[in-house]
Design a protein around this nucleic acid. Structure first.
Lengths: 275, 275
DNA sequence: GTCACATCTGAAACCTATTTTCAGCCCCTG
DNA sequence: CAGGGGCTGAAAATAGGTTTCAGATGTGAC
C-alpha cells in the first residue's frame, strides 16, 4: 500500500460514517489526494469500486450506531425518567451477557460439566446475592436428577463439606473472589478430595487457590445506581445456565425424563386460566 | 401514494438488502416501473434522492445481518459443542432482555415504584424459580432501608398477608400467572387494602384479578434444553432491577446512605486478595 | 356516453458521480 | 546522476441518478 492510499485508508478506518457521507471527490479533497487514488484504495480493500465501499461503509456506520444507542451507555442518573432507566438497565445487562459469553473458557466449563455429570453429590456455596444464584443452580440440577445442595449458612456449608470425597463436586460462587464464608467450605471440600469449581469475577482472587476449575464472570463497571451485584448476578446466572445445559446434554438419557417428570409434577399447582 | 410507487415501496420494504444492491434502473426493472418513479418514491420516503435511500438501505441490511448472528438463533441441540451452547444461551437471554424492556409498561412501573417508595412494609411472594427472584428483590429493597420480606412458604405468606393494610405493598411473581400458591396471598393482601403488584408473563392470567399494577415479563419460546424458567427468570430479574432502581431514585435521600452503609458492613467479610 | 381536468407514468434529456486513461513526477537503483 | 519502475492526479469517458415533459390513465361532471 502506498503513501497516499494509506491516507485514504486511514480516513476510512478513522471515520467510516463520515466517509460514507462523502462522494469520491469529497473524500479525495479531505485526504488531499485524487479521485483515482480513492478508487484504487477501494479496490485494494476488496471492493469493485468506491461506490461499493461506500455502501459497505454505510452499513458499518449503521451497525456502530445501533451498538451504542444514543445515551444508553451513559450512567443512570437520579433524575432519569423511568423509560430511560429500563433501557439503560436492559442494555447494560445485555452487555454483561456478551462480555461473559466472550470471556468464558469453554475448556474449564467442559471440565466442570464433566465433573458435575459424574458427581455422587454436589455442594454449592454462595452468600448474599450469590446465594440466590447458588440456589438457582441447585434447583436446576435437582430437576435433572442430580444430588445438589445450595448452602448459604457458612457453618452448615463447612460441616457438609467434610462429607465430600473424591468424585463429588463443590462449587463456590463469589463475585469478589475473596468471600471468606464461601472460600472456607471450598477449601475443606478441596482438602477432602472433591473436585472444586469457582465461579468468580476475580480469577486471581484467593478463592482460586482451592479451585480445580475456574469459571470467570464479567466484572462490569458499577456505580451508585448500578450496584456490582446487579451485573455480577446476570453474569453468574449465565454461567449457571451454561453449566446446567451442558450437564443436561451430557446426561441426556436420564436428564430428559427427569425434566419431564418435574414439569408434570408442577402442572396441577397452576389454577385454570381465567380467559 | 400511487400504485406504481407502492410497488417500489413494497419491494424496498420486502428486501432492503436486495434493493441496496440494485441501481435505480435495476430497481425500476424489478418493479416494472421507471427510474423516475423510483426516485419519486425515494423522495416520498424522506430521502433527497435514490442515492441516499440506497445508503440507508445498506445500513439497514447490515443491521439485520448483525441482528441474527448465523445459527445462534437455532435451538440448542443435544450434540451442540459447549461454545455454541454458551453463545446461544447468551444470545437468547439478550433477546429476552430486549423483549422485556420493549414490552414493559413504564406507567405501571412508575405506579409500582411510587407505591413501593411510600410503603410501610412490602411482602413479596414467589415459589420455585420465581421464589429466588422474590428474594433478590427483597434483598435489594432491604439494602436501601425499606421493610421487605420474600415469602416462599405459601402458608406463612398468607398469614403475613393478613397483616397488610392500606399503604403497604404486596408483590406476586409468577411466570404462568396462575400459580395458586402466590395468587392466594396476593388476594388476601388485596382484600386487606394493600397495593398489589403482579410480575407475570401472563397479564391475562388469574393473578391479575388481584393486582393493582401489572408488570409484564416476556414469554420467550422454550424447548427441552431451554426451559421457560430460564428466560422468565432473566425477564423477571430485569423488572426487579427496574423497580429497585426506580425506588432508589425516588428515595435517593435515604437510599444512598443506606446503600453505602450496607456496602461498608460487608467490606470486612472479604479476605485480603492474594495478588 | 363523452368531454374536460387532474393526476400518474415512463422515455429521454440532462447532469452528477464514479471510473478509466494517460502523461508527468517522484523515488529508488545501479 | 541517468534510467526505469511505479505512484499520482488531471482530464476524458462512462455509468448512474435526476429532471423534464409529453403521453396515458383515471375521474367526475354534464
Amino acid at each position: 500500500m502506498t503513501r497516499s492510499m494509506l491516507r485514504v485508508a486511514e480516513a476510512v478506518a478513522g471515520d467510516p460514517a463520515g466517509c460514507a457521507a462523502r462522494t469520491v471527490t469529497g473524500l479525495a479533497e479531505l485526504t488531499g489526494t485524487s479521485e483515482a487514488t480513492v478508487v484504487r484504495t477501494a479496490r485494494l480493500l476488496g471492493y469493485p469500486g468506491y461506490r461499493d465501499l461506500r455502501l459497505a461503509l454505510a452499513g458499518l456506520a449503521a451497525q456502530q450506531q445501533s451498538g451504542r444507542a444514543p445515551s444508553v451507555t451513559a450512567d443512570i442518573a437520579v433524575d432519569d425518567p423511568l423509560a430511560d432507566v429500563v433501557a439503560k438497565l436492559a442494555y447494560d445487562e445485555q452487555q454483561t451477557l456478551a462480555d461473559t459469553a466472550a470471556g468464558l473458557d469453554t475448556i474449564q466449563l467442559g471440565a466442570a460439566v464433566t465433573a458435575l455429570a459424574g458427581a455422587r453429590r454436589t455442594d454449592i456455596y454462595g452468600v448474599g446475592a450469590s446465594g440466590l444464584v447458588a440456589q438457582d443452580l441447585a434447583q436446576k440440577l435437582l430437576r435433572i436428577g442430580l444430588v445438589a445442595h445450595a448452602h448459604s449458612d457458612p457453618h452448615l456449608a463447612v460441616t457438609n463439606a467434610v462429607q465430600l470425597r473424591s468424585g463429588d463436586v463443590a462449587i463456590a460462587i463469589t463475585h469478589s473472589g475473596s468471600t471468606g464464608d464461601v472460600i472456607e467450605p471450598l477449601r475443606v471440600a478441596f482438602d477432602h478430595g472433591a473436585t472444586t469449581v469457582a465461579i468468580t469475577g476475580r480469577p486471581d482472587g484467593p478463592v482460586s487457590q482451592y479451585a480445580d476449575h475456574i469459571l470467570t464472570t464479567s466484572t462490569a463497571r458499577e456505580s451508585e445506581l448500578r450496584p456490582a451485584a446487579m451485573s455480577s448476578r446476570t453474569s453468574q446466572l449465565l454461567v449457571v445456565d451454561c453449566l446446567f445445559t451442558g450437564v443436561t446434554q451430557r446426561t441426556y438419557e436420564t436428564a430428559a425424563p427427569a425434566l419431564a417428570a418435574s414439569y408434570e409434577a408442577l402442572a396441577h399447582r397452576h389454577a385454570p386460566r381465567t380467559r
